[in-house]
């Protein structure tokens, strides 16, 4: 029977999604306790925002997490710590450790627990990979044509595998797996956000990916809804519509810098060394082919329609970050007026 949660455990609270989710849950008086878990303490501003939510500094790779769950009698676990940003997670191998081993440990603790009765897992649409042989939109049942070779996407594929075997072993616990597309917004910090903030944005020569985005607020709202109700299943989560990569760069007022395919890894290494953007090879493939997910199931079965479309989310990001366009749109208008004036002056016109 669907019961409102009373003790909620949120992982990854020192990052945007986990922190804001903990804050939202803490603001709900029907929830008795909100426990936030992470290896690093959240920022002061985030802690203030989280209000009465308690922060427990514990590594989810440590069996201690099981103790936290049993002593606090946690009934709802929201695993929001899956990260695709190695810069924030202490490097690539550390990120993989945290993602995969952390999830295994957390799932093991949940399996032992007799109080947990709902599990929400944040996953990513990167599990679909990105290749030329993929259909235009992925539904939840689409098999990836090319299994992601490594990095974040492979972590996510493995995590989903563990989550599936968990639900086989504990069929009594409804599990919601949410496959998020790339998040964007004025406050969140992801590789994608940094990428669009570059003054000149590198793109792969001859490719123009379709980009689907989700607003940060929508992402938090989806997790909150999943934590509050029993909505088992796998759901794609993304805003409506798409932007072409080139179009997004133009909307942000940036200039694309086309790079031939063979030189892409080189440029990727450079931006990583220079601490500008850290894209894993699998995310680079996204820049070639893009990825769009079908969100019909989210809207009908899950009952959530993102408030921001992809375009609106991107525009909110551009406005919120105060990205100054290189070309002033009003100058373009003036250029056009000048052109029309010249045409009027021409004797051949009529």
């Amino acid at each position: 029977m669907p019961e409102a949660p009373s003790v909620v455990l949120v992982t990854g609270v020192s990052r945007f999604l986990g922190g804001h989710l903990a804050a939202r849950l803490a603001a709900d008086p029907s929830i008795e306790r909100v426990l936030g878990v992470d290896t690093t303490p959240p920022s002061r501003e985030m802690r203030r925002r989280m209000g009465r939510a308690e922060f427990v500094r514990v590594d989810i790779r440590n069996p201690l997490i099981g103790k936290v769950i049993s002593t606090a009698k946690v009934d709802t676990v929201v695993h929001a710590s899956l990260s695709g940003n190695p810069g924030q997670s202490g490097g690539r191998s550390m990120m993989m450790e945290m993602n995969v081993i952390g999830t295994m440990q957390l799932l093991a603790a949940c399996q032992r627990s007799d109080t947990v009765r709902r599990l929400v897992v944040k996953s990513t649409s990167a599990v679909y990979g990105a290749s030329k042989r993929d259909p235009a939109t992925f539904t939840e049942t689409t098999e990836p044509k090319a299994i992601p070779p490594g990095g974040y996407a492979k972590d996510a594929v493995e995590i989903e595998g563990y989550v599936r075997s968990f639900s086989r072993r504990r069929p009594d616990i409804p599990v919601t797996t949410l496959r998020f597309v790339n998040l964007i917004g004025p406050r969140i910090d992801t590789s994608f956000v940094r990428y669009f903030s570059l003054p000149v944005v590198p793109v792969v020569l001859g490719y123009d990916a379709r980009v689907q985005l989700l607003h940060e607020e929508d992402a938090v709202a989806v997790l909150e809804r999943a934590a509050a109700q029993d909505l088992p299943g796998v759901f794609n989560v993304g805003g409506a519509g798409v932007l072409m990569l080139s179009q997004a760069i133009r909307r942000a007022g940036r200039f694309p810098l086309p790079i031939p395919q063979p030189a892409v890894p080189l440029v990727g290494r450079f931006t990583r060394r220079a601490r500008l953007v850290d894209f894993s090879p699998e995310q680079m493939r996204l820049l070639n082919f893009g990825r769009v997910v079908d969100t019909t199931k989210l809207r009908t079965e899950f009952g959530f329609t993102p408030r921001w479309t992809t375009v609106q989310a991107f525009d909110d990001f551009v406005a919120g970050r105060g990205l100054r366009p290189w070309i002033d749109p009003s100058r373009l208008g003036q250029a056009q007026d000048a052109a029309v004036a010249v045409a009027r002056a021409l004797p051949t016109g009529s």
């Binding site: 080139s246 760069i249 749109p329």
Partner: peptide
Amino acid sequence: LTGRYAVDD
């Protein structure tokens, strides 16, 4: 130049 056009899925 300003990206103000629509594309479908």
